[in-house]
Amino acid sequence: MTAVLQTDHLSLQFGGVNALSDLSIEVDEGALHAIIGPNGAGKTSFFNCLTGYYKPTGGAVRFQGNEVTGLDAAKVAALGIRRTFQNIRVFPKMSVLENVLAGGHLRATSNLLSITVASRGFRRRERLLHEEAMASLEFVGLADQWNNLAGDLPYGMRKRMELARVLIANPVVVLLDEPAAGVSSVEREELSRVIRRIHDQGTCVVMIEHDVDLVMEIATDVTVLDNGRIIASGLPQDVRTNPDVIRAYMGRKRK
């Protein structure tokens, strides 16, 4: 299998602190790759390096064979790497539909003249985008919420709306930062169903998640981070029994 997203000895330092050191990960095509690790392990920093929010201090990020290290966040998103945020980032004073349309930003007409005169082509493309936005909302089960303000949605629905917003862009890789954190067990079921369906469609998913049961249930690969380093990686069932992983989570056994 070929790697869609790959990091090569990636490192990130804040002052004297090594947030990430020597991280080499390969995310294969069609994978649902989970990244787990205790708090402060550097998981979100790693995502931020992948998506252009942080500039890594060393190493490289490659996407479909091309180096994307240090690219601007908007450029990374334009390439087809889309993400959600740990503390959900919706556009609160825009409707749910418009939030999703915003995700399809790059697919909408930018020709000022056709926007101004509302040309046939402009209207057709907007209509298509509207239809796809509704399809994305349908996909995550939020179609009936389209006209509500995103800021008025309950937490779990916002998480799903963020997914719809990612999906409308037809991304190659989706990075999900703790999709199931803080949601009810009903919402968790719904989310895991949606994530699995995204994966089934052939989209590559990388997911930071604390919910080990969820990871074991849906992930195809797991990488475990601790203190900015990879301590284990492989199949979910192998990682689960890895002594280093148990030590990172549970602490060292007293002699």
């Binding site: 998103a77 945020f85 980032r89 556009f91 609160p92 825009m94 915003a102 917003r165």
Partner: peptide, 24 residues
């Protein structure tokens, strides 16, 4: 009603998240 207007509102609401939409 176009992508310009949506992009501007996204920037107003949350500039960092706007970048994740591919908005320069």
């Amino acid at each position: 009603g176009s992508r310009l207007g949506r992009a501007w509102l996204c920037i107003r609401e949350d500039e960092d998240a706007a970048k994740a939409m591919g908005i320069n």
